[in-house]
Design a protein around this nucleic acid. Structure first.
Lengths: 342, 342
DNA sequence: TTGTAAGCGTTATCAG
DNA sequence: CTGATAACGCTTACAA
């Protein structure tokens, strides 16, 4: 064991302890041919005895592989990502990969900048929950050629072989609108990021399409997806005259649905009597809210697990069945939706 | 710019472009003396033009500093840690440090194992939200001598100069018990991790002390702090005869308070009529629950920001005013507490 | 003020 | 099957 400031044992130490060369140690430890089984075993043993651990920086410098994966999240405040990260990290750790996590705070420039630090750090693969159109993923892929997986984002140009794990947003929005329409709602609103900042414009498109098909009126409330920004936007909508304001709001996350709850309370509107709300994600707290939140449940942890799996497969050159995993969202009808006020 | 698989520009490339030596480039870029201001400027310029970024592995190998900080969390499922991480990461990123995040899943062996991978990765400092008595922190400190900060944990032996950012658990428990006692409760329960796995036995101690001082009856419900494990423990308590079961439950996190809500509902008990609940953390959702959760609010983000600040100060050899930061928890009385049933 | 050279710990090439 | 030896990209004496 190394004392304070003492140096960790190196291959050199292992080699000297056995009276052999460093290269023999390297070969033995990396399961490469060129060393007898007997020697390999002895090397392993003394390496373990000495508490030898390969120096990651040296390995990375030499092999250009850092056994590190970068995870770039657009909003580390949304609990949705917590389980995603947890699943992702567990899978990575299981294969000896470390995770470098960063948050772009919904800022495109920050996203690009952080992606570049990932490149400088020699990260082997990138998992990106992008802010907008995944520009950073494009640059990453062009300059590194390394595996990429997009989390809950629109598909990148077909040209780029970027993988993807996402929730089926079309089906989700269809379910949400269908449910509200069936309840009798005629004026719906979708809370959404400004188009160019939206990771998934497909949802807004679907909303407008379905609303048109059903001859409903639907408005998209564009806002930065932070509680601070969404609050005023919602206040403005809810303060409109009774006969023209939306009777139901669909959000793309339970996280934001909470803001709707707060805004409604602020305006003296009761949920679901005066306003119906449909969330998305089914956070653990959503069933405990007053009223319990009607939402589209998704398996958050599986998103992370799947994304990590795709990346690890690519890193190991394992053939993957699919490069684009779509996960379902299932509607859970609870107490936040009801027929509209008359 | 480098093409796919193309190599990123190195100091060598910068030097060649200017017709100077590599060491001049290194000196110039690192703001060290030994190079004229004029040359320094030109080096900076061409480095920027070429898009040069230092190779982190090479720097780390040479300097034994990776500009990486390891964050080891005991439970990545608790949203409490999300804001802590967010604050921590923001501060680190601002100083050019990357964050390696891992979760020990409340497993002591896993915690130690992950800490060792941090050592192998040459992490410069460790932030640890430990499982139990911070054994991993001790080993880390002994073998690396590098800065350590404990998040929400009991103090380590005074001998070890380990820093700490924590919520004042004594005051928190005192407030919780005091509030319930004032409401008239006589039989309290504290939901807590098994003593040896508890990061903060001080809370249980305080609970027992205050309960004794006030001549109340108090029981500690020991359970692994996962929803799956806590559920049955709570069920057992709540299923006890009416006259002996606790009329109020204190938890050390809102995350677990949610489990209490679910358990109470499962037993047909109403909150707060049949059972009072006090949480801890004031998660964003806690005010929206049914009923709104009485809890001890803490500034989660500040915990992360402060911890990162302590570490960065230590890494930069800046003198720090204090090495042990205690943050207050303030009681927010909401709807989950009321006088006990008669 | 600048360049040369050694070396961080590892892997990989090439002789023996 | 094994052992020197040369990189990887960078920092840092030391020499010019």
């Amino acid at each position: 064991m190394a004392g304070p400031g003492g140096n960790a044992p190196t291959q050199h130490d292992v080699a000297r302890a056995l009276g052999i060369s460093v290269s023999a140690v390297s070969l033995a430890l990396n399961d490469r041919s060129g060393v007898s089984e007997d020697l390999r075993a002895r090397v392993r043993q003394t390496a373990a005895d000495l508490g030898y651990r390969p120096n990651t920086s040296a390995v990375a410098l030499r092999t250009r592989r850092s056994r590190t994966i970068g995870l770039l999240i657009r909003n580390l405040s949304n609990p949705f990502f917590l389980d995603v990260i947890e699943g992702f990290e567990t899978v990575c750790a299981g294969s000896g990969y470390a995770l470098i996590t960063a948050s772009s705070h919904y800022d495109l420039r920050r996203e690009t900048e952080l992606m570049r630090t990932f490149i400088a750090r020699g990260v082997d693969a990138l998992a990106l929950a992008p802010v907008g159109g995944s520009r950073a993923a494009g640059e990453w892929h062009r300059t590194t050629g390394r595996p990429t997986v997009l989390l809950n984002a629109a598909r990148l140009g077909r040209a780029l072989p970027v993988m993807r794990t996402h929730v089926d947003g079309v089906a989700a929005v269809e379910q949400a609108v269908g449910h509200l329409a069936d309840l009798g709602h005629r004026r719906l609103a979708l809370l959404s990021a400004p188009r160019r900042r939206s990771p998934d414009p497909e949802r807004a498109d679907t909303f407008l399409r379905v609303v048109a098909e059903r001859r409903l009126s639907g408005r998209i409330l564009e806002t930065e997806l932070t509680a601070a920004a969404a609050g005023p936007t919602l206040d403005a909508e809810l303060a409109r005259p009774r006969r023209s304001r939306a009777t139901a709001v669909i959000t793309n996350s339970d996280h934001l649905a909470h803001v709707v709850y707060a805004a409604a309370a602020g305006q003296g509107l009761r949920i679901p009597d005066d306003l119906s709300v449909v969330g998305h994600d089914d956070l653990p707290t959503s069933a405990l809210l007053a009223p319990p939140l009607t939402t589209l449940a998704v398996d958050r942890r599986t998103i992370g697990v799947t994304a990590a799996g795709l990346l690890l497969d690519a890193l190991a050159d394992r053939p993957t069945a699919t490069r684009d995993v779509s996960l379902p969202a299932t509607l859970l009808v609870r107490g936040s939706t009801a027929p509209p006020p008359r």
